[in-house]
């Protein structure tokens, strides 16, 4: 995908649970529903497997948005994994907000296996919201921040003559 600002496209990483939301996305496919191609799904067995580190990492590696999909409360294939997800996501949402990320960039949705149309709706909605926010581009930001370090490193290494180490 191009990153030049004129034809920038949002990149959404999604973590879908195997039993509900991943299956719903399959259903959307079988039903030939059309939705925005900006989403990349990573399959987890349960949304409870979602380590908050993954969300942070996805943003750090260049995602413009992260979508979590799990079974509806009470419907978890693993009894109550999705409640653990809800607890983690609740705190993570707040922390990401404190870290300056707009709330539209991170979303949790309960989508059951039969809700193919909800996959379509949520993805389209989120892509448009993130598009309106513009690129997050953390890797680009990191590179910008670190540009300030290039000059000095070169300076130190140039000003120093090669002095061979003594042998002890």
């Amino acid at each position: 995908m191009e990153t030049k600002s004129n034809n920038w496209e949002p990149r959404i990483v999604a973590f879908f649970c195997n039993w509900c939301t991943y299956t719903a996305a399959d259903l959307a496919g079988v039903s030939r529903m059309k939705y925005a191609p900006n989403i990349r799904v990573i399959r987890l067995m349960c949304s409870g497997r979602l380590d908050p580190q993954y969300v942070m990492m996805a943003f750090a590696k260049g995602a413009d948005g992260v979508l979590i999909g799990g079974c509806h409360p009470g419907d978890c294939h693993y009894v109550e994994g999705n409640y653990k997800t809800l607890r983690r996501v609740t705190l993570l949402e707040r922390m990401l907000h404190d870290l300056g990320l707009e709330k539209e960039r991170f979303r949790l949705e309960w989508i059951s296996a039969s809700e193919g149309d909800k996959v379509k709706k949520v993805v389209n909605e989120m892509v448009e919201q993130v598009r309106a926010l513009g690129p997050l581009d953390m890797p680009g930001r990191f590179a910008d921040w670190d540009k300030e370090m290039e000059e000095l490193e070169a300076h130190v290494n140039h000003s120093q003559k090669e002095i061979p180490a003594h042998v002890h």
Binding site: M1, A25, D26, G29, R32, M33, K34, P37, R40, V41
Partner: peptide
């Protein structure tokens, strides 16, 4: 299910297949 059946023919669908 997650690509060709839900997206229009074109570079975006192919890019997605490459990324995945």
């Amino acid at each position: 299910e997650h690509d060709s059946w839900v997206h229009e023919k074109g570079a975006a669908a192919t890019d997605k297949a490459k990324d995945l």
